[in-house]
Design a protein around this nucleic acid. Structure first.
Lengths: 350, 350
DNA sequence: CTCTTAGATGATACCGCTCCCATTCTCGTC
DNA sequence: GACGAGAATGGGAGCGGTATCATCTAAGAG
């Protein structure tokens, strides 16, 4: 009863044409008469035929597969702590749907940025899966080992949301402008003692945000003392520790900006524990705008990263290039961010 | 510079053995002397060789690929509304990590349960991807078209979290016991006027939960009038509509149980809008226990579904069977649920 | 010491497709 | 009317593995 799926040969026989002609029709190649084309399509329909990806990959120059390399530690940490992983969620949404449109597939891989096996891991995936393109997320998109492995094999790739230029095509948002706008939002509310909980400096966005924050504050006449920058690592716990350290300063901040949502939620929990009203006593601003900050009490003002759009665009670039047989991906794409003003930021206390 | 990956032939040459011997080593087949095995492994290492999945799929009887069929509508709705999709997240976590351990891969497919092309969609995926196994989530795991297509092609599959037995192997939780425990939790708090917002009846868990709720109430001497069951469809909006309808009853409930998290959050929003204290005036209990209900204010008491564990187990069953060359999957697996008691349920008001 | 037998290895035919290279056919051209 | 260009089709060689089967070796039996 194990019904074997139909092959291209069955289709060819049924349509009374050569295998090659079927292939032409399937791949929309030119020089096929409408008559034959119709016969082939009819046979395909009747047999419920769908070409084997494996065979196509072997024989042809395309595999109809994109791979997304995510950071293993970051990803697993999020999963384990049951915080969910909206980055991945949104990537799936954006990239997968785009892939589907063109008969492509998307595969997730977790790679360990700290492992000395990193290059081997990447290489193994590339040679066993032979993807037509790769999507890199931070911090992989800034990792020379990862980039080197891809370049050595001339696998087209697109980097998601890295501010680092010159290392290949990327789809990104303007981190600098976002940090500036976020800072100005707080300044506009009358805050002058603003602190920041930075992200892991292995992510260059983290550095950029801090720098821009400092520059913007300085320009407004409120230079930021070093103590008001806390180095975090994107975890909830870092948010808690950072908030405590910052609020224990002799001149505690009236607003705290966190470089991602989980740290911001950590800040919220500390504020609540200390009986500080948000935003009455303390304003809180976050980056990422994942679901947690929209549902938290109060809902958080946040810089929204259009992850789904970025992923969709990245997939689009890779598929387009692959379909055209190009190994080189065209230019960069800037996608707009948005400052979602919600209930966690308000006028500075007197 | 496009370095071609090494093939099994290169390995064979380097190790001075036949291609077949390399294949034996790679697949842990018996009857290879340690000497040769060592030579082969050394060559593999030196060349950074990793066998092509495509070639293996074509030549062999395994593809090292599992496919998870998710419901397209449900999934996309969740994504579009930016509520996230923790089911998928957790499946990735559980199933993907299990796959990784055995050199397998997991691929997500969205299929439209309402489409008349459903069977064609499934068939296309099966014949183009040739997965070694399929994981089905509700409501696909109860869809005769889906099940039929899989059976026709003898593709092993495991159904996740369906109470329907006799249609193939499944990994599931005891919905009946969960509904009973949830109901008793509320009864224990003194509630007698308890209402339920049911899920889409296309998911048989929905029906089971309602029935068990009714039976448990009846046994406790508090039969549930029909008006206290609202038929929802798993959306936030259904939760809102349901809460309004139920609270507008002449004898409004003191507790509402919702068949999933989004509907429960809808109930919370109505309660807040009407100035009802939770749980002072109204207790709320939910199913699924996704991240939203843990972060909401107040955090919700919920029946936790161990989705990651279920997915891991499902992947495990499929991989084990596939490795053993069996087309038949062994039995069912019951995984434990847990009632997470949080701040949204409390003693019934006087 | 020959015969059996199981273990160890290799040769080779595919698997289902794409790609390169004929081959045939139809025109338009001089 | 012979000839070349280009369109329409087909033939057949791989792609990189696995599976079947043949071959060869060495250990144990009589």
């Amino acid at each position: 009863m194990a019904k074997r799926p139909a092959t291209i040969i069955h289709v060819a026989e049924k349509a009374r044409v050569s295998v090659k002609t079927v292939s032409r029709v399937l791949n929309d190649e030119p020089n096929v008469t409408p008559d034959l084309k119709a016969r082939v399509l009819a046979a395909v329909e009747k047999l419920g035929y769908s070409p084997s990806k494996a065979a196509r990959t072997m024989a042809g120059s395309r595999s109809y597969l994109l791979v997304a390399f995510n950071d293993r530690r970051l990803t697993l940490d999020n999963w384990r702590s049951e915080r969910g992983n909206e980055w991945i969620d949104q990537m799936l949404y954006g990239a997968m749907l785009r892939c589907e449109q063109s008969g492509y597939h998307l595969m997730f891989e977790l790679v360990d940025r700290e492992s000395d096996q990193l290059e081997k891991q990447i290489t193994a995936v590339l040679s066993s899966l032979q993807p037509d393109g790769v999507i890199l997320t931070p911090p992989n998109c800034e990792n020379p080992v990862v980039l080197g492995a891809l370049k050595k094999r001339s696998i087209p790739f697109v980097r998601l949301n890295t501010p680092v230029r010159g290392q290949g095509p990327r789809v990104y948002m303007d981190d600098r402008a976002a940090a500036r706008q976020a800072t100005k939002h707080l300044l506009g509310l009358g805050h002058t003692r603003i602190a920041m909980i930075a992200g892991d400096y292995k992510f260059s966005s983290s550095i950029l945000r801090v720098e821009t924050f400092e520059a913007t504050m300085e320009a407004a006449g409120h230079p930021v003392p070093e103590a008001r920058i806390y180095k975090g690592d994107f975890t909830f716990e870092a948010g808690v520790a950072g908030a405590r350290a910052l609020l224990d300063l002799p001149d505690p901040p009236t607003a705290i900006m966190a470089s991602n949502d989980q740290m911001a939620l950590g800040v919220v929990s500390v504020a609540q524990a200390r009986g500080l009203a948000v935003p009455g006593d303390l304003s809180i601003l976050s980056y990422d705008d994942t679901i947690g900050v929209r549902l938290s009490a109060p809902s958080l003002t946040a810089v929204r990263q259009p992850v789904a759009k970025m992923a969709e665009k990245a997939a689009d670039m890779l598929i387009t290039a692959s379909a055209a047989g190009e190994k080189q991906i065209a230019g960069n794409t800037l996608v707009p961010f948005e400052l979602m003003v919600r209930a966690s930021t308000g006028p500075a206390p007197k």
